[in-house]
Design a protein around this nucleic acid. Structure first.
Length: 805
DNA sequence: AGCACGCCGACT
DNA sequence: GTCGGCGTGCTC
């Protein structure tokens, strides 16, 4: 039996990033297993923290007295070997603490809550009791929530030995339970009693008859018994008193999606789909960690390819993991998977309550669910024996987590595919440049679905030049061609989707006459307006210039901020079309739980003619009666100071265009823009992903951007601007010293929104091709950042950032 | 993170 | 001389 446990304590610091050794008391030695959560004493005094067992041994390199493990929190390990290895890999690649990685991999309810309380050790004076224990003892002692005087007073009493601090670590994990019923007597005996009481107590007799036919060793929920036997809980209580049945606590799962679903069968595939399924199936059967890019236009039946591939994995006795963007994880989408695989499906996403998440997690952990569908963090689902991993809409930026650990679910998926020797399928109509480039290099097998499954024609896309519109009809959010098209649909009782692009809302200036956007002379990236300094700044190199009052290109005076809000647009639209019913969908109108689905359902039932919304309406909604899609401002994202601006614009326009004419009626799309000649817009019009890819790759090559270069972003933030800036300059000095001459260091520059939550942000971006010293240099920076962290300076490292601003 | 130790100025 | 401010190091 192992004497010593290697524990990662739940204290996220550099010094505790390696496991600490704890003695295993004899009474726990048969309980402690690697992968379990434990509570251990940590530090001086009696402070308790939670931790995770990552190893067992009989020796330790630590030459001090070992403290004993206090409690074991789990009956079975919560992290298997794979997930522990994954956590280590994640920690190194994302520059995060190991324990932080583990926490993100586990469901919320398995995160423990440390609690501090104080209680008197002797009798205190009435005055002391009144001041410090007005609600009695013990009381909570959270220094961050109490006022300074109380904290000081309590600490003083502690030094005097009059009060003591007690620690507790709460485990939030709680399975939902209900009362279970089991027969306490033999069927024959129960029947005998039933016959006796039949006349006087018919209900009791019914219950007895029901109990008599129950399997002896099975426990059934009380509610189910009551329903099936046709009795009330009161009758059951009486029966329990008479000793006919026994009550017990029964663990149940909360079922988040209890609507019944009609089962579906595999659909007939077209030749392209069939090729895709065959290739993926080969990889599943051959246990190859081969990766695929399924590139399919909207409506080309990617989902059917996924479902049949999953079916194949299940048939081989293996499991499947399917990732979808949070926004696409609607009940419709989930039901589609459940209709095919039924009870084997588990769903993981943030819309579920903590308890529901935990239950789904346990179903997966116990092997009861073999198909997992979920958003980003579902990539850590404890599925074993994976046969396939699918990531739909792989280009979605929400797959990257924007807090520590800053991981990309795609990278984790590829890691797990490798571990399980199973294929990873990345799917998109508009793959990210990185993924498409890797496919071009042969790292992924490219499977193209070029035909729409139901052979609908692609929608006709019109580009409306807003510069012309401005000249002809003045400043309006709605062009004449778009309004005409809207009116036509209203007359025909067809529906309309209008998208307002909120990204980049009024943070840059654009000329309304010629579409000119001010760019940095060094970086070819848009300059951002800074009202605090009244200047235009480049967030890559720090270049700064005055806000222009006339357009440097055409000398027009109509150069100004660009951007509008959905509410304003809705009001304007209501004025123009007083009879049309308009539904608005944006961050504000969907804040409440379920609002998102409600709006979509209303629109689906044709309770409104027009759905007006932000980017969220571009994703996956499928309404047969929508024949017109209008994009009010295609340019806003183009103006952002981000090298992915064109990519994002192209993806968004292509996606939203796919919303038009999905059934029998042909669709039309109107894109309003001040940049009608921009390649992202032109190529979105012709729906030509391949040409966009080639063009954009050329741009990336010119600018030394990904996928030609790797990138790391470092950010320093502090309440005082000078502190953040100085830290960043020191970091840059360290980088210049430690890295090769080939590394390109951009910055330091203030962030686009330099001040967020009373803190100033400065950043630097490193672009590199090969930099063996990068990891050690960044580790050294992390280490050095520990000291000033005490004074509120935080430094973050983001490998392959999604937002360069 | 949270606690103790140690070094400084301001106080009874 | 001591109380308590904060800066620093350490926690198996």
């Amino acid at each position: 039996m192992a004497q010593i446990g290697q524990i990662l304590v739940d204290v996220p610091t550099m010094q505790t990033n390696d496991p600490y050794s704890y003695a295993i008391p004899t009474e726990l030695e048969h309980q402690v297993q690697v992968g379990m959560r434990v509570i251990v004493p940590f530090g001086r005094g009696h402070r308790l923290v939670s931790g995770v067992v990552v190893g067992l041994s009989d020796v330790t390199s630590f030459d001090g007295k070992l403290k004993p493990i206090e409690t074991v929190l789990d009956l079975a390990p919560v992290l298997n070997t794979e997930l522990r290895q994954l956590a280590d890999w994640l920690a190194t690649t994302t520059y995060a603490f190991r324990i932080t990685c583990i926490q993100t991999m586990l469901p919320n309810l398995l995160k423990t809550q440390p609690k501090r309380q104080v209680q008197p050790t002797t009798t205190l004076t009435p005055a002391e009791m009144a001041t410090y224990f007005p609600e009695g003892a013990p009381r909570d002692f959270d220094a961050t929530k109490l006022d300074d005087a109380t904290v000081a007073g309590l600490l003083k009493l502690q030094r005097a030995g009059k009060v003591e601090v007690v620690y507790e670590v709460k485990d939030k994990a709680a399975a939902k339970t209900t009362t279970g019923i089991a027969p306490a007597l033999t069927p024959a005996k129960l029947q005998e009693i039933a016959d006796k009481v039949a006349k006087r107590a018919p209900k009791q007799a019914e219950l007895l008859v029901y109990l008599a036919q129950m399997p002896a060793d099975k426990v059934v929920a009380q509610a189910a018994v009551a329903k099936k036997a046709g009795v009330t809980p009161a009758v059951i209580a009486t029966a329990a008193d008479k000793g006919w049945l026994t009550k017990s606590t029964l663990e149940v799962y909360r079922d988040p999606f209890h609507q019944p679903v009609t089962p579906t069968r595999a659909l007939k595939l077209n030749p392209e789909q069939q090729v895709a399924v065959d290739r993926i199936t080969q990889a599943i059967d051959g246990q190859q960690s081969k990766n695929f890019l399924v590139e399919g236009v909207t409506g080309s039946g990617k989902t059917e390819v996924y479902l049949q591939s999953i079916a194949q994995a299940l048939q081989q006795g293996r499991t499947a993991l399917m990732l979808v963007p949070e926004i696409a994880l609607t009940p419709q989408m989930v039901n589609r998977v459940k209709a095919r695989f039924g009870q084997r499906v588990a769903v993981l996403h943030s819309g579920l309550s903590k308890g529901e998440q935990y239950d789904e997690w346990r179903r997966i952990d116990r092997g009861e669910a073999t198909v997992v569908v979920g958003a980003r963090s579902a990539v850590f689902a404890p599925v074993e024996n994976l046969g396939i991993i699918i990531m739909d809409e792989e280009h979605e930026s929400s797959y990257k987590q924007d807090e520590n650990p800053r991981y990309h679910a795609r990278d984790v998926a590829l890691w797990r595919g490798q571990y399980h020797h199973c294929p990873v399928v990345l799917g998109s109509a508009t793959p990210s440049l990185e993924t498409r480039a890797r496919a071009a290099k042969g790292l992924y097998t490219r499977l193209v679905l070029s035909k729409r499954a139901k052979a609908q024609p692609m929608p006709t896309v019109h580009i409306v030049d807003m510069r012309e519109q401005l000249k002809q009809q003045g400043d309006s959010d709605f062009s004449e061609p778009l309004m005409t098209a809207i009116q036509e649909r209203l007359d025909r009782h067809e529906q309309i989707v209008l998208m307002l692009n909120r990204r980049g809302y009024s943070s840059f200036v654009m000329c309304r006459d010629c579409g000119f956007v001010l760019k940095c002379p060094n970086c070819d990236i848009s300059l951002t307006l800074h009202m605090d300094t009244h200047s235009m700044k480049c967030h890559y190199c720090g270049h700064e210039e005055a806000i222009p009052h006339v357009c440097p290109n055409c000398h027009s005076k109509k150069i100004r901020y660009y951007g509008t809000g959905t509410q304003k647009v809705q009001q304007a639209l209501e004025k123009l079309l007083p009879t049309a019913k308009i539904l608005r969908m944006d961050v504000d109108s969907t804040r409440r739980k379920g609002a998102h689905e409600r709006i979509l359902r209303q629109f689906g039932e044709h309770k409104a003619d027009i759905l007006l919304g932000t980017q969220m309406i571009a994703k996956g909604l499928d309404f047969p009666n929508v024949t017109l899609v209008g994009v009010l401002n295609a340019d806003t994202a183009l103006g952002l100071p981000d090298f992915r601006a064109s990519e994002r614009t192209f993806q968004l326009l292509t996606q939203v265009s796919g919303r038009a004419g999905r059934a029998t009626k042909p669709g039309e799309v109107y894109i309003q823009t001040f940049n009608p000649d921009h390649y992202a817009i032109q190529l979105a019009q012709s729906q030509d992903y391949e040409r966009f890819f080639v063009t954009e790759m050329h741009m990336r090559h010119q600018g030394n951007y990904p996928p030609y270069y790797f990138a790391v972003q470092l950010t320093a933030s502090h309440e005082e601007e000078a502190v953040a800036a100085k830290a960043m300059f020191q970091i840059v000095a360290a980088l210049k010293q430690g890295l090769s001459k080939d590394a390109i260091i951009l910055g330091p520059t203030p962030k686009a929104i330099a001040r967020v939550k009373r803190k100033y942000y400065y950043q630097v971006v490193i672009k590199y091709k090969q930099e063996p010293q990068l990891r050690p240099v960044l580790e050294q920076i992390r280490q050095a950042a520990q000291v000033p962290a005490r004074h509120g300076l935080s430094v973050t490292i983001d490998s392959e950032p999604m937002n360069f601003m």
